[in-house]
Amino acid sequence: MAESSLQIDHLSKRYGSVVALDDMTFDVRAGEVFGFVGSNGAGKTTTMRIVLGVLSADSGEVRWAGERIDLASRRHIGYMPEERGLYPKMKVGEQLIYLARLHGMPAGAARSAAEQWAERLGVHGRWDDELQKLSLGNQQRVQLAAALVHDPQILVLDEPFSGLDPVAVDVMSQVLAERAAAGVPVIFSSHQLDLVQRLCHRVGIVKAGRMVALGGVDELRAGAEGRLVVTAPQGPPGWATIVPGVTVTAQDNATVTLQLAPGADDQAVLAAALATGPVTEFSWRRPDLTELFRHVVTTQEAA
Protein backbone atom coordinates (compact mmCIF):
# COMPACT_ATOMS: atom_id res chain seq x y z
CA MET A 1 0.00 0.00 0.00
CA ALA A 2 2.77 2.41 0.91
CA GLU A 3 4.04 2.32 -2.65
CA SER A 4 0.85 3.83 -4.09
CA SER A 5 1.35 7.01 -2.10
CA LEU A 6 1.38 10.42 -3.72
CA GLN A 7 4.72 12.16 -3.36
CA ILE A 8 5.19 15.85 -3.77
CA ASP A 9 8.91 16.19 -4.22
CA HIS A 10 10.71 19.54 -3.95
CA LEU A 11 8.28 21.55 -6.06
CA SER A 12 9.19 25.13 -6.81
CA LYS A 13 7.27 27.68 -8.83
CA ARG A 14 7.79 31.39 -9.36
CA TYR A 15 5.72 33.99 -11.12
CA GLY A 16 8.26 36.63 -12.01
CA SER A 17 9.57 37.84 -8.67
CA VAL A 18 6.75 36.22 -6.69
CA VAL A 19 7.61 32.87 -5.14
CA ALA A 20 4.52 30.68 -5.24
CA LEU A 21 6.14 27.45 -4.12
CA ASP A 22 9.50 27.09 -2.47
CA ASP A 23 10.76 23.51 -2.24
CA MET A 24 7.37 22.08 -1.30
CA THR A 25 7.81 18.49 -0.16
CA PHE A 26 5.43 16.01 1.46
CA ASP A 27 3.64 12.80 0.71
CA VAL A 28 0.10 11.52 1.03
CA ARG A 29 0.09 7.85 1.91
CA ALA A 30 -2.34 5.32 0.54
CA GLY A 31 -5.43 5.15 2.73
CA GLU A 32 -4.64 8.43 4.39
CA VAL A 33 -6.68 11.63 4.61
CA PHE A 34 -4.25 14.50 4.42
CA GLY A 35 -5.32 18.01 5.42
CA PHE A 36 -3.65 20.87 3.62
CA VAL A 37 -3.96 24.13 5.53
CA GLY A 38 -2.49 27.58 5.20
CA SER A 39 -3.45 31.20 4.68
CA ASN A 40 -4.78 32.39 1.35
CA GLY A 41 -2.00 32.56 -1.18
CA ALA A 42 0.24 30.19 0.77
CA GLY A 43 0.55 27.82 -2.19
CA LYS A 44 -2.09 25.13 -1.58
CA THR A 45 -3.95 25.67 -4.85
CA THR A 46 -0.73 26.02 -6.84
CA THR A 47 0.51 22.69 -5.44
CA MET A 48 -2.74 20.94 -6.34
CA ARG A 49 -2.80 22.41 -9.83
CA ILE A 50 0.73 21.16 -10.41
CA VAL A 51 -0.29 17.69 -9.22
CA LEU A 52 -3.09 17.78 -11.81
CA GLY A 53 -0.78 19.01 -14.54
CA VAL A 54 -2.84 22.14 -15.06
CA LEU A 55 0.27 24.12 -14.12
CA SER A 56 3.84 23.05 -14.59
CA ALA A 57 6.44 23.39 -11.85
CA ASP A 58 9.75 25.18 -12.39
CA SER A 59 11.49 22.29 -10.64
CA GLY A 60 10.67 19.21 -8.65
CA GLU A 61 8.24 16.46 -9.50
CA VAL A 62 5.12 14.63 -8.45
CA ARG A 63 5.22 10.86 -8.17
CA TRP A 64 2.53 8.28 -7.70
CA ALA A 65 3.50 4.79 -6.64
CA GLY A 66 7.09 5.74 -7.21
CA GLU A 67 6.67 6.86 -10.79
CA ARG A 68 6.58 10.35 -12.18
CA ILE A 69 2.94 11.27 -12.69
CA ASP A 70 1.80 11.71 -16.31
CA LEU A 71 -1.40 12.30 -18.24
CA ALA A 72 -2.40 8.63 -18.10
CA SER A 73 -1.94 8.32 -14.33
CA ARG A 74 -3.59 11.72 -13.80
CA ARG A 75 -6.78 10.26 -15.23
CA HIS A 76 -7.01 8.27 -11.99
CA ILE A 77 -7.19 11.45 -9.94
CA GLY A 78 -10.50 12.80 -8.74
CA TYR A 79 -10.12 16.57 -8.76
CA MET A 80 -12.20 19.38 -7.39
CA PRO A 81 -10.70 22.71 -8.46
CA GLU A 82 -10.86 25.70 -6.16
CA GLU A 83 -12.68 27.59 -8.89
CA ARG A 84 -15.69 25.36 -9.30
CA GLY A 85 -16.72 24.81 -12.85
CA LEU A 86 -18.90 22.64 -15.01
CA TYR A 87 -20.85 23.44 -18.17
CA PRO A 88 -23.73 25.65 -17.01
CA LYS A 89 -26.00 24.71 -19.91
CA MET A 90 -25.33 21.00 -19.94
CA LYS A 91 -27.68 18.58 -18.24
CA VAL A 92 -26.46 17.12 -14.93
CA GLY A 93 -26.57 13.51 -16.13
CA GLU A 94 -24.95 14.15 -19.51
CA GLN A 95 -22.26 16.17 -17.79
CA LEU A 96 -21.32 13.43 -15.34
CA ILE A 97 -21.30 10.78 -18.07
CA TYR A 98 -19.16 13.00 -20.29
CA LEU A 99 -16.59 13.60 -17.54
CA ALA A 100 -16.49 9.90 -16.67
CA ARG A 101 -15.83 9.08 -20.31
CA LEU A 102 -13.11 11.74 -20.58
CA HIS A 103 -11.41 9.88 -17.74
CA GLY A 104 -11.44 6.79 -19.93
CA MET A 105 -14.56 4.96 -18.75
CA PRO A 106 -16.51 3.04 -21.37
CA ALA A 107 -20.00 4.42 -22.11
CA GLY A 108 -22.00 1.85 -20.15
CA ALA A 109 -19.84 1.98 -17.03
CA ALA A 110 -19.82 5.80 -17.23
CA ARG A 111 -23.60 5.92 -17.16
CA SER A 112 -24.02 3.55 -14.23
CA ALA A 113 -21.28 5.29 -12.24
CA ALA A 114 -22.86 8.69 -12.95
CA GLU A 115 -26.26 7.46 -11.82
CA GLN A 116 -24.81 5.89 -8.72
CA TRP A 117 -23.03 9.05 -7.61
CA ALA A 118 -25.95 11.31 -8.47
CA GLU A 119 -28.10 9.05 -6.30
CA ARG A 120 -25.58 9.00 -3.47
CA LEU A 121 -25.20 12.78 -3.46
CA GLY A 122 -28.92 13.43 -3.71
CA VAL A 123 -28.99 15.09 -7.14
CA HIS A 124 -30.46 12.22 -9.13
CA GLY A 125 -33.82 13.99 -9.22
CA ARG A 126 -32.16 16.76 -11.24
CA TRP A 127 -30.59 14.36 -13.78
CA ASP A 128 -32.20 16.01 -16.81
CA ASP A 129 -31.92 19.61 -15.61
CA GLU A 130 -29.32 22.05 -16.84
CA LEU A 131 -26.69 22.63 -14.18
CA GLN A 132 -27.41 26.36 -14.02
CA LYS A 133 -30.96 25.65 -12.86
CA LEU A 134 -29.69 24.00 -9.67
CA SER A 135 -29.10 25.81 -6.37
CA LEU A 136 -25.49 26.59 -5.51
CA GLY A 137 -25.46 23.82 -2.91
CA ASN A 138 -26.69 21.26 -5.40
CA GLN A 139 -24.18 22.47 -7.98
CA GLN A 140 -21.48 21.74 -5.39
CA ARG A 141 -22.84 18.24 -4.98
CA VAL A 142 -22.70 17.72 -8.74
CA GLN A 143 -19.13 19.02 -8.65
CA LEU A 144 -18.24 16.43 -6.05
CA ALA A 145 -19.96 13.73 -8.10
CA ALA A 146 -17.84 14.88 -11.06
CA ALA A 147 -14.69 14.35 -8.97
CA LEU A 148 -15.76 10.87 -7.90
CA VAL A 149 -17.56 9.51 -10.95
CA HIS A 150 -14.57 7.73 -12.51
CA ASP A 151 -13.70 5.76 -9.37
CA PRO A 152 -10.49 7.74 -8.75
CA GLN A 153 -7.42 6.14 -7.21
CA ILE A 154 -6.27 9.49 -5.81
CA LEU A 155 -8.43 12.35 -4.54
CA VAL A 156 -7.24 15.94 -4.74
CA LEU A 157 -9.88 18.33 -3.47
CA ASP A 158 -9.36 22.08 -3.20
CA GLU A 159 -11.67 23.51 -0.53
CA PRO A 160 -14.25 20.74 -0.93
CA PHE A 161 -16.29 21.91 2.05
CA SER A 162 -16.72 25.55 1.12
CA GLY A 163 -20.28 26.35 0.16
CA LEU A 164 -21.72 23.07 1.42
CA ASP A 165 -24.72 22.81 3.72
CA PRO A 166 -24.28 20.75 6.93
CA VAL A 167 -25.91 17.67 5.40
CA ALA A 168 -23.62 17.82 2.38
CA VAL A 169 -20.63 18.32 4.72
CA ASP A 170 -21.57 15.05 6.43
CA VAL A 171 -21.93 13.23 3.10
CA MET A 172 -18.61 14.63 1.95
CA SER A 173 -16.82 13.66 5.19
CA GLN A 174 -18.22 10.20 4.93
CA VAL A 175 -17.14 9.83 1.30
CA LEU A 176 -13.59 11.00 2.08
CA ALA A 177 -13.22 8.53 4.96
CA GLU A 178 -14.66 5.77 2.82
CA ARG A 179 -12.33 6.38 -0.11
CA ALA A 180 -9.34 6.50 2.22
CA ALA A 181 -10.44 3.23 3.80
CA ALA A 182 -10.42 1.75 0.29
CA GLY A 183 -6.72 2.58 0.07
CA VAL A 184 -6.97 5.86 -1.83
CA PRO A 185 -4.66 8.72 -0.86
CA VAL A 186 -6.89 11.71 -0.14
CA ILE A 187 -5.65 15.29 0.10
CA PHE A 188 -7.89 18.25 0.68
CA SER A 189 -7.39 21.86 1.59
CA SER A 190 -9.66 23.73 3.94
CA HIS A 191 -9.93 26.74 6.16
CA GLN A 192 -12.39 24.88 8.39
CA LEU A 193 -9.79 23.63 10.83
CA ASP A 194 -12.22 21.82 13.11
CA LEU A 195 -13.18 19.65 10.14
CA VAL A 196 -9.53 19.08 9.27
CA GLN A 197 -8.78 18.11 12.85
CA ARG A 198 -11.68 15.66 12.90
CA LEU A 199 -11.14 14.05 9.48
CA CYS A 200 -7.44 14.02 8.81
CA HIS A 201 -4.82 11.50 9.77
CA ARG A 202 -2.10 13.99 9.02
CA VAL A 203 -1.96 17.70 8.44
CA GLY A 204 0.45 19.91 6.56
CA ILE A 205 0.59 23.62 7.28
CA VAL A 206 1.97 25.76 4.47
CA LYS A 207 3.19 29.28 4.57
CA ALA A 208 4.67 31.33 1.75
CA GLY A 209 5.08 28.29 -0.45
CA ARG A 210 6.83 26.14 2.14
CA MET A 211 5.63 23.30 4.33
CA VAL A 212 6.21 24.62 7.86
CA ALA A 213 4.56 21.90 9.94
CA LEU A 214 3.77 18.35 9.00
CA GLY A 215 2.47 15.46 11.04
CA GLY A 216 -0.47 13.79 12.71
CA VAL A 217 -2.85 16.17 14.40
CA ASP A 218 -2.10 14.70 17.85
CA GLU A 219 1.60 14.65 17.12
CA LEU A 220 1.58 18.33 16.19
CA ARG A 221 -0.53 19.24 19.18
CA ALA A 222 1.72 17.27 21.51
CA GLY A 223 4.79 18.90 20.09
CA ALA A 224 3.43 22.39 20.54
CA GLU A 225 3.64 24.35 23.78
CA GLY A 226 0.72 23.67 26.05
CA ARG A 227 -1.13 26.19 28.16
CA LEU A 228 -1.74 25.96 31.86
CA VAL A 229 -5.26 26.88 32.90
CA VAL A 230 -5.69 27.82 36.56
CA THR A 231 -8.78 29.04 38.41
CA ALA A 232 -8.06 30.65 41.75
CA PRO A 233 -11.21 32.59 42.75
CA GLN A 234 -9.52 34.63 45.48
CA GLY A 235 -6.31 35.32 43.63
CA PRO A 236 -5.40 39.01 43.33
CA PRO A 237 -4.63 40.28 39.82
CA GLY A 238 -1.18 39.29 38.68
CA TRP A 239 -0.73 36.58 41.32
CA ALA A 240 0.75 34.17 38.78
CA THR A 241 3.45 36.48 37.43
CA ILE A 242 5.49 36.18 40.60
CA VAL A 243 6.54 32.73 39.42
CA PRO A 244 9.60 33.02 37.14
CA GLY A 245 9.05 32.27 33.45
CA VAL A 246 5.28 32.63 33.51
CA THR A 247 3.26 34.94 31.23
CA VAL A 248 -0.50 35.40 31.25
CA THR A 249 -1.94 34.89 27.76
CA ALA A 250 -5.62 35.22 28.71
CA GLN A 251 -7.71 36.10 31.74
CA ASP A 252 -11.39 35.34 32.14
CA ASN A 253 -12.62 36.39 35.62
CA ALA A 254 -10.76 34.14 38.03
CA THR A 255 -9.48 31.82 35.30
CA VAL A 256 -6.08 32.58 33.83
CA THR A 257 -4.36 30.91 30.90
CA LEU A 258 -0.62 30.80 31.36
CA GLN A 259 2.28 30.24 29.10
CA LEU A 260 5.35 28.74 30.76
CA ALA A 261 8.82 29.37 29.48
CA PRO A 262 10.99 26.27 29.05
CA GLY A 263 12.21 25.17 32.50
CA ALA A 264 9.48 27.01 34.39
CA ASP A 265 7.98 24.86 37.13
CA ASP A 266 4.23 24.24 36.98
CA GLN A 267 4.29 23.06 40.63
CA ALA A 268 5.56 26.46 41.66
CA VAL A 269 2.54 27.92 39.86
CA LEU A 270 0.25 25.58 41.81
CA ALA A 271 1.93 26.58 45.06
CA ALA A 272 1.51 30.25 44.23
CA ALA A 273 -2.13 29.68 43.39
CA LEU A 274 -2.81 27.78 46.61
CA ALA A 275 -1.19 30.60 48.51
CA THR A 276 -4.04 32.92 47.36
CA GLY A 277 -6.77 30.59 48.61
CA PRO A 278 -8.71 27.65 47.09
CA VAL A 279 -7.88 26.42 43.56
CA THR A 280 -10.85 25.00 41.66
CA GLU A 281 -9.11 24.21 38.37
CA PHE A 282 -5.55 23.37 37.47
CA SER A 283 -4.98 21.73 34.10
CA TRP A 284 -2.66 21.54 31.10
CA ARG A 285 -4.44 22.14 27.87
CA ARG A 286 -3.14 21.13 24.47
CA PRO A 287 -3.74 23.64 21.69
CA ASP A 288 -6.32 22.76 19.06
CA LEU A 289 -5.47 22.98 15.39
CA THR A 290 -6.70 26.54 15.12
CA GLU A 291 -4.34 27.71 17.85
CA LEU A 292 -1.58 25.61 16.43
CA PHE A 293 -2.12 27.10 13.01
CA ARG A 294 -2.11 30.61 14.39
CA HIS A 295 1.01 29.86 16.39
CA VAL A 296 2.87 28.32 13.45
CA VAL A 297 1.95 31.10 11.10
CA THR A 298 2.84 33.93 13.48
CA THR A 299 6.07 32.47 14.83
CA GLN A 300 7.35 31.74 11.38
CA GLU A 301 6.56 35.32 10.54
CA ALA A 302 9.08 36.48 13.16
CA ALA A 303 11.74 34.05 12.03
Binding site: E67, A72, R75, H76, G104, H150, G183, V184
Partner: peptide, 16 residues
Protein backbone atom coordinates in the same frame (compact mmCIF):
# COMPACT_ATOMS: atom_id res chain seq x y z
CA UNK B 1 -11.59 -0.58 -5.89
CA UNK B 2 -9.13 -1.25 -3.10
CA UNK B 3 -6.22 -2.15 -5.33
CA UNK B 4 -4.81 0.91 -7.04
CA UNK B 5 -4.13 0.65 -10.73
CA UNK B 6 -0.49 0.95 -11.71
CA UNK B 7 0.86 4.45 -12.07
CA UNK B 8 1.47 3.94 -15.75
CA UNK B 9 -2.29 4.18 -16.14
CA UNK B 10 -2.38 1.53 -18.81
CA UNK B 11 -5.27 -0.84 -19.01
CA UNK B 12 -8.93 -0.39 -19.78
CA UNK B 13 -8.96 3.22 -18.61
CA UNK B 14 -6.36 4.46 -21.10
CA UNK B 15 -7.74 7.05 -23.49
CA UNK B 16 -5.85 7.90 -26.64
Amino acid sequence: MSSPIGASGAGPAALN
